[in-house]
Simulated assay, not measured.
Amino acid sequence: MTKPVGLTKNNTWQYGIRRTVPMPFHQVWDFLFSKKGLSLWARHPNTQFSTYIDRSHIRTKWQLPGWSQPVILQLRVLAGNQKTTIAIHVEKMLHQQQREEARKYWETTLLYIQNALKTQVE
C-alpha cells in the first residue's frame, strides 16, 4: 500500500512549500522580519522563536485557529544567483486535514508576501 503524501514514519503529517523571488537575499530577509513582513506571515506563530539564526532560518510553534495543539514551523531563506527562495516547512501535524489547512494557508500567505515584495521593487 502506498503511503499518503505528507505522512511521516512517526505517523504525523508534514507539509513544505517554496517560492522563489527575483530579489537579493538581504532584501527578502529584512522584509520578512520587518513590521510589515511579520504582519503577513507571523499572525499565528509564536514569535518567541525556539531557533533564530540571523540571515538563515527560524523555528517556532505554530497553530491555526481551531487546532487543538501547536505544530512546528520552520521558515528558511535561501540565497540564489540573483534570486531568493522562501521555504516553509510545517511538521508534527496530527492528521491529513491539518496538512491541507496548512497547505491552503501557506500558499495564500506566500502569494501575499510575493506581492508585497514586488511592490517594494516597483
Score class of each variant (00 low, 15 high):
residue 38 L to E: 12
residue 120 Q to L: 15
residue 116 A to M: 00
residue 59 R to L: 11
residue 77 V to N: 07
residue 62 W to K: 07
residue 101 E to N: 11
residue 60 T to V: 11
residue 57 H to D: 07
residue 62 W to E: 04
residue 1 M to I: 07
residue 121 V to P: 00
residue 75 L to G: 05
residue 102 A to Y: 04
residue 70 P to L: 06
residue 51 T to Q: 14
residue 117 L to V: 01
residue 66 G to D: 10
residue 107 E to P: 00
residue 107 E to L: 13
residue 97 Q to L: 09
residue 42 A to H: 03
residue 42 A to D: 09
residue 100 E to S: 07
residue 14 Q to M: 11
residue 121 V to R: 14
residue 44 H to A: 03
residue 33 F to W: 12
residue 34 S to P: 05
residue 43 R to M: 13
residue 69 Q to R: 15
residue 38 L to S: 05
residue 103 R to S: 14
residue 85 T to N: 02
residue 74 Q to C: 07
residue 65 P to N: 13
residue 15 Y to T: 11
residue 48 Q to C: 07
residue 73 L to S: 03
residue 116 A to G: 02
residue 47 T to Y: 04
residue 115 N to E: 13
residue 100 E to C: 01
residue 23 M to N: 03
residue 12 T to D: 11
residue 99 R to G: 01
residue 68 S to V: 06
residue 48 Q to I: 10
residue 45 P to Q: 07
residue 70 P to K: 01
residue 28 V to A: 06
residue 77 V to E: 06
residue 57 H to L: 13
residue 102 A to S: 15
residue 60 T to Y: 11
residue 87 A to I: 01
residue 48 Q to H: 15
residue 11 N to V: 00
residue 81 N to R: 13
residue 99 R to A: 15
residue 46 N to Q: 13
residue 106 W to F: 14
residue 106 W to A: 02
residue 104 K to V: 03
residue 22 P to I: 03
residue 10 N to G: 04
residue 54 D to H: 10
residue 12 T to W: 00
residue 61 K to D: 15
residue 21 V to N: 05
residue 50 S to D: 14
residue 6 G to M: 01
residue 18 R to N: 13
residue 27 Q to T: 11
residue 43 R to C: 12
residue 86 I to V: 15
residue 30 D to G: 02
residue 83 K to Y: 05
residue 18 R to D: 14
residue 71 V to L: 00
residue 75 L to M: 15
residue 81 N to Y: 08
residue 38 L to V: 05
residue 48 Q to M: 10
residue 68 S to C: 05
residue 39 S to E: 13
residue 4 P to N: 11
residue 82 Q to W: 02
residue 66 G to C: 12
residue 36 K to L: 09
residue 70 P to G: 09
residue 99 R to W: 00
residue 29 W to N: 04
residue 24 P to V: 04
residue 48 Q to A: 13
residue 39 S to Y: 02
residue 33 F to A: 08
residue 23 M to I: 15
residue 60 T to D: 09
residue 28 V to I: 09
residue 110 L to I: 08
residue 57 H to V: 00
residue 108 T to Q: 14
residue 89 H to M: 04
residue 4 P to W: 10
residue 86 I to L: 09
residue 24 P to N: 15
residue 68 S to M: 08
residue 71 V to F: 01
residue 64 L to R: 09
residue 31 F to T: 03
residue 111 L to V: 14
residue 32 L to R: 06
residue 78 L to H: 05
residue 1 M to E: 10
residue 59 R to D: 13
residue 99 R to F: 01
residue 85 T to F: 01
residue 111 L to T: 12
residue 87 A to W: 08
residue 83 K to G: 02
residue 45 P to I: 10
residue 63 Q to F: 02
residue 106 W to V: 04
residue 95 H to R: 06
residue 28 V to Q: 04
residue 71 V to P: 00
residue 18 R to H: 05
residue 6 G to I: 01
residue 106 W to M: 08
residue 16 G to H: 08
residue 96 Q to I: 04
residue 21 V to L: 09
residue 29 W to T: 03
residue 72 I to P: 00
residue 119 T to Q: 13
residue 64 L to E: 07
residue 63 Q to I: 05
residue 81 N to M: 07
residue 5 V to E: 14
residue 6 G to Q: 01
residue 62 W to A: 03
residue 22 P to M: 10
residue 19 R to I: 12
residue 119 T to R: 11
residue 101 E to I: 03
residue 53 I to Y: 06
residue 32 L to V: 09
residue 4 P to I: 09
residue 11 N to G: 02
residue 74 Q to A: 12
residue 91 E to N: 04
residue 67 W to S: 13
